[in-house]
Simulated scan of single mutants.
Amino acid sequence: MALLVAAYFIMNIAGLVIMWEDKRRAKRHEYRIRERTLWLVALFGGAVGTTAGMQLYRHKTKHLNFKIGFPILAIIEVILLFKVLL
């Protein structure tokens, strides 16, 4: 159980960082992180972090698939985590 919680925590930190990095690159007109990569981080447990990063850094908020998809995925992941832990 502790390993699962640690992995979930690490993936969410990674989600937050990857959204920050993509926003930084966007501002500098540099090579961007693929949207597929953002989605994969979210799908593998980082949806809460990517959603927080999206809101915190105001990044990808105009893209409907991110604006709706990340929060829905975050809710599903939190529910699944609680079901596994309880």
Rank of each mutant, 00 (worst) to 15 (best):
I79R: 08
Y8D: 01
I18W: 06
M54L: 02
M1P: 00
L38T: 10
I75W: 07
H63K: 15
F82E: 02
I13C: 14
E35Q: 13
Y57I: 02
E21C: 00
M11E: 03
V41R: 10
R34N: 13
A2I: 09
L38M: 14
I79H: 01
L85M: 12
F44H: 08
T61L: 07
G53R: 04
T61S: 11
I79N: 04
R24Y: 07
M11C: 05
R36T: 13
L73M: 15
K27D: 11
K62A: 09
Q55D: 00
I76D: 01
L85T: 02
F44A: 13
K62G: 09
L40W: 15
I13M: 11
N12C: 05
I13N: 08
I18E: 01
G49T: 06
R36S: 14
G15E: 09
I72N: 06
A7Y: 10
G45C: 03
F9H: 03
Y8A: 07
V48T: 10
T37S: 14
L73W: 11
L64T: 15
G46W: 06
K27V: 01
L73I: 11
W39T: 14
L73H: 12
G46H: 07
Q55Y: 08
I76F: 10
V5D: 00
L85K: 06
A74F: 06
L85P: 00
V17Y: 08
R58W: 09
D22I: 03
A74H: 07
V41Y: 10
I72C: 12
K83L: 11
G46D: 07
R36E: 14
P71R: 14
K62S: 10
K67N: 12
L38W: 12
Y31K: 13
G53P: 00
G46A: 09
A6D: 01
G46K: 07
A6W: 04
M54W: 04
